[in-house]
């Protein structure tokens, strides 16, 4: 059975609106106007045990709202979701004991207390038997190399150290499902890599399923075989990470090394870069092989590669509003549906 099953999930927020100015402020005192904001609209997907799924989207796409619904913090406005067989928002203890939520921008350890004391509190709350607790704590502390930090108060830790301690605290009860909302936000590259490696290792060891949002594509590339891309609360793409460019990117790049550094290259595509004989050209995806053949025919070529554009660029393109509709149409015509 899938760990996470989501069907037509929807969340509408009612937010007060008022125009600028004193008059509007006074009017809003007695007649408040509201506007409905659809944060999440008709999401459906499943996550199988042990899967690591990247949940991607620009700010305001509905990622955090979805994670909050799946971890039981928010009621949906419509649709259904089951995590480990439970309706999350009922917040049954059996459910809460088996999942964890880590939010990179929020602290759940006690600010003034040494890290070990917060761990101890979690032991009491999750009722982890002493031996299991110590084994889990020692293993996690060891994996994240924070042995010398745990006796310090949280407020004395650097951002990266704090995040590592947060993650240990969130995993002491060995959750089967992990919701990670920007776990590497604000960290330097080395620390991001450390946490990423750890999460991969933890997933392999524990078989826990992971749903991860991150603005750092490196996190997604390193951890997720599958991604769900959402925009304006709707799923744009759900499938293998490797297939994302095929579906969404409208172009490919051809890099050629030409014997003649000054060869005329009009009519092949958009020249992105030219460095002596080494030229990078962007061409429509469907024309890539034809253009490559032409280049090989018409010039003396010592080397040629055809590549998808970098994932960062693909994602950026999906999220830029102008292309979103087109991307959405492209994806829908490919009917990715929900994987799994």
């Amino acid at each position: 059975m899938a760990d996470v099953v989501v069907d037509d999930l929807e969340r509408v927020f009612r937010v007060p609106v008022r125009e600028a100015g004193l008059g509007a402020a006074v009017r809003s005192l007695y007649r408040r106007e509201h506007r409905e904001v659809r944060a999440v609209e008709g999401l459906s997907f499943r996550i199988e045990p042990g899967e690591v799924v990247g949940f991607l989207g620009p700010n305001g796409a509905g990622k955090t709202t979805t994670l909050k619904m799946l971890s039981g913090l928010l009621h949906p406005s419509a649709g259904s979701a089951r995590v480990l067989g439970h309706e999350p928002w009922r917040r049954e203890r059996e459910f809460l004991s088996r999942m964890t939520l880590v939010m990179g921008n929020r602290n759940q350890l006690q600010w003034d207390l040494p890290v070990v004391d917060s761990f101890e509190m979690n032991r009491a709350i999750f009722r982890i038997p002493r031996a299991h607790f110590e084994a889990a704590r020692d293993e996690l502390v060891d994996l994240l190399e924070i042995g010398d930090l745990v006796t310090k108060p949280v407020r004395n830790l650097s951002l990266g150290e704090r995040m590592k301690a947060e993650i240990v605290g969130a995993l002491l009860h060995r959750p089967q499902v992990m919701f990670l909302d920007e776990p590497t936000i604000g960290l330097d590259v080395t620390m991001q890599k450390r946490i990423r490696t750890f999460l991969g290792e933890y997933n392999r060891r524990s078989g826990a399923s992971v749903m991860l949002t991150s603005h750092y594509m490196a996190d997604v590339l390193a951890l997720c075989e599958r991604v769900i891309v959402i925009h304006h609360g709707r799923i744009l793409y759900d499938g293998a990470l490797s297939g994302l460019a095929d579906r969404v990117a409208a172009s490919k790049t051809i890099t050629v090394r030409l014997a003649d550094a000054h060869a005329a290259l009009d009519g092949y595509g958009r020249v992105l870069a030219r460095d002596g004989g080494r030229v990078t050209i962007e061409v429509p995806r469907t024309d890539a092989s034809r253009v490559a053949a032409r280049l090989l025919n018409e010039h003396e070529v010592s080397d040629l590669t055809i590549e998808d554009p970098p994932l960062e660029d693909v994602i950026e393109r999906v999220f830029s509003d102008g292309d979103a509709a087109a991307a959405s149409a492209a994806v829908r015509s490919g009917s990715p549906g929900s994987a799994g």
Binding site: R93, R106, I125
Partner: peptide, 17 residues
Amino acid sequence: EGTFDHVLVKPADAQLL
């Protein structure tokens, strides 16, 4: 500040916590 979220995702009575 929204940190009350962390109280709610714990498997214990939220009022008590």
